[in-house]
């Protein structure tokens, strides 16, 4: 992993401003984004953490009341709804992301290289993620409708019994996974496709000389070379999947019963339907910690692959 630092080549003879810039390129590249992100995040995070130790419903008459850790202990020990939603969140995200990764990789390999109408196809395939989650949720809601919806009409045509879809505790979560896969596989595919296009060529030349089979080339070259991109794409998609809100809230509001309530929708309910800002904040803090933990794991995995790439 010995990456040589281009800054070392920096000529040191000149003291002009441009030169100063060039010598401090690292700082200049880092600072703007760092300042921006911190400026936007420090207060909200601090505020939320502070609020998580309080009880408040936004009242103008009564300021937040300190309650110590009780919001946390309440969630972690006395609220089965929370742990159920945690489990569901992970089930939903895992199911969706794995399907999206496999399908996305397949589609990326398929779309790799020139073909007739490639720009057009690559644009069309974006459609599921462009059509605004709310509208998409409403459209799927109608398509899933067991009595008058399209899906059951299709099933009847091919002689399969109509399904309750979102109206059943067993099927609702997986119906939502289906929508998520439909919506986000294109993004996965396009990121991986972009990754494929910049893979170095030499290893393939060598493999050809050695007479490697296509399968060997895929498993021993493409996959390892693409791994950093795969990990990043999976990481970004996992974060978003864990935070999925729009389609769930539009289509089921967490129902039937609580069968599709995820941590994020529960957090929304706590803030905007129950007006329990302190409780909601503690939930958001825990949720944040969980996702951060998972992300750091991904980053570790990526570092390992990064060494090889």
């Amino acid at each position: 992993m010995a990456v040589s630092n281009p800054a070392e080549y920096s000529p040191k003879r000149n003291t002009s401003f441009v030169d100063w810039l060039n010598r401090h390129i690292k700082l200049i590249f880092i600072l703007p984004s760092l300042i921006f992100v911190l400026a936007m995040m420090v207060f909200p995070i601090g505020y939320t953490v502070w609020l998580s130790f309080n009880e408040w419903n936004g009242s103008a008459r009564q300021s937040p009341q300190g309650v110590g850790l009780s919001n946390y202990t309440n969630l972690l020990t006395a609220d089965p709804r929370f742990w159920d939603s945690v489990l569901r969140t992970f089930l939903f995200s895992f199911g969706a992301v794995v399907a999206e990764l496999l399908l996305g990789l397949g589609i990326a390999l398929l779309l790799q290289g020139k073909f007739f109408g490639q720009n057009f196809i690559k644009t069309l395939i974006l459609l599921p993620m462009v059509a605004t989650p709310v509208a998409i949720g409403m459209a799927w809601l109608l398509m899933f409708e067991p009595t008058i919806g399209l899906l059951n009409a299709l099933l009847r045509d091919i002689g399969i019994a109509p399904q309750p879809w979102l109206g059943s505790e067993q099927q609702a979560l997986w119906s939502l996974v289906m929508v998520d896969v439909w919506q986000w596989t294109p993004m996965m595919a396009l990121i991986l496709l972009a990754g494929l296009t910049v893979l170095p060529e030499e290893p393939y030349e060598a493999a050809r000389v050695d007479g490697a089979s296509p399968r060997q080339r895929f498993f021993y070259l493409t996959l390892p070379l693409l791994m950093p991109t795969i990990v990043v794409a999976t990481l970004l998609r996992s974060i978003d999947a864990l935070k999925t809100f729009d389609i769930i809230y539009t289509m089921t509001r967490g129902g039937p019963g609580y069968a599709t309530e995820t941590i994020n929708t529960y957090g929304y309910v706590q803030s905007f339907e129950y007006f329990k800002l302190g409780q909601a904040s503690s939930l958001l803090v825990i949720f944040f910690a969980m996702v951060l933990g998972i992300s750091l794991l991904f980053i570790q995995v990526r570092r390992r692959w990064g060494v090889q790439a």
Partner: peptide, 25 residues
């Protein structure tokens, strides 16, 4: 290029924080 890994984590944090957190602040 310069292996500023921590910056990556900081930037990623912005994506991880649930959106509701930001609204009132």
């Amino acid at each position: 290029r310069y292996r500023v890994g921590w910056l990556g984590v900081v930037l990623l944090t912005a994506r991880i924080v649930p959106g509701i957190t930001f609204l009132i602040p």
